[in-house]
């Protein structure tokens, strides 16, 4: 499980945009994974399973908690910018990509993280987020459109196959 910690933390960070919340998410994920290890099927994808747990915790618990306590988890001003390490400062392109992703709406950000960063298939990402594949497709399409500078109102399909309207 250790090998997955940095990726889980990165995913938690992208969701919460808050390093301490990211740590909290990973810790809860570890605890729950061990509690539920009987449910893990040997031979299946452990990484996907851990991401599913983290997604679920984020969705069901922490977010509600932060909203209740006004923790400001979704402060849109908070970008994925870190302790000014040299590599970050010198790499403007990567920093820009982090900022752009950070500014995407949460649902799109989550899909981008799972499919483009973690390189899960659409089907795996849909399973992790417990949404239909059409929703993943719609979120990625909206994210790409936004990053390409397309005007959302001019985008032909704003509605996913399952009828969900993407929030921007």
């Amino acid at each position: 499980m250790e090998a997955h910690l940095p990726r889980l933390w990165r995913y938690g960070l992208s969701l919460s945009r808050n390093p301490s919340v990211a740590e909290e998410l990973v810790q809860s994920t570890c605890v729950r994974a061990l509690e539920r290890q009987a449910q893990f099927r040997q031979g299946t994808n452990l990484r996907a399973w851990l991401f599913t747990i983290l997604s679920s915790i984020w969705k069901n618990h922490l977010r509600a908690e932060k909203v209740r306590t006004g923790g400001g988890f979704a402060d849109p001003e908070t970008e994925l910018v870190f302790d000014g390490s040299d590599s970050m400062e010198t790499n403007n392109l990567f920093q820009r990509v982090l900022s752009e992703v950070s500014e995407l709406p949460e649902a799109q950000r989550q899909a981008v993280m799972l499919v483009y960063v973690e390189e899960f298939t659409y089907r795996e990402a849909a399973h992790i987020l417990e949404v239909p594949i059409g929703t993943i497709m719609s979120r990625l399409s909206a994210a790409r459109g936004k990053l390409a500078g397309l005007d959302p109102s001019a985008t032909p399909a704003r509605r996913t196959r399952d009828g969900e309207v993407e929030k921007n």
Partner: peptide
């Protein structure tokens, strides 16, 4: 146009992996 929405997502985010606070995460 949609292709222009592509980015080096993975490479950019891989720069974050080293910043994971492994000691604290491991302690958990």
């Amino acid at each position: 146009l949609l292709r222009q929405g592509d980015r080096p997502f993975r490479a950019a985010f891989d720069t974050l992996l080293d910043q994971a606070p492994m000691d604290r995460l491991m302690a958990a």
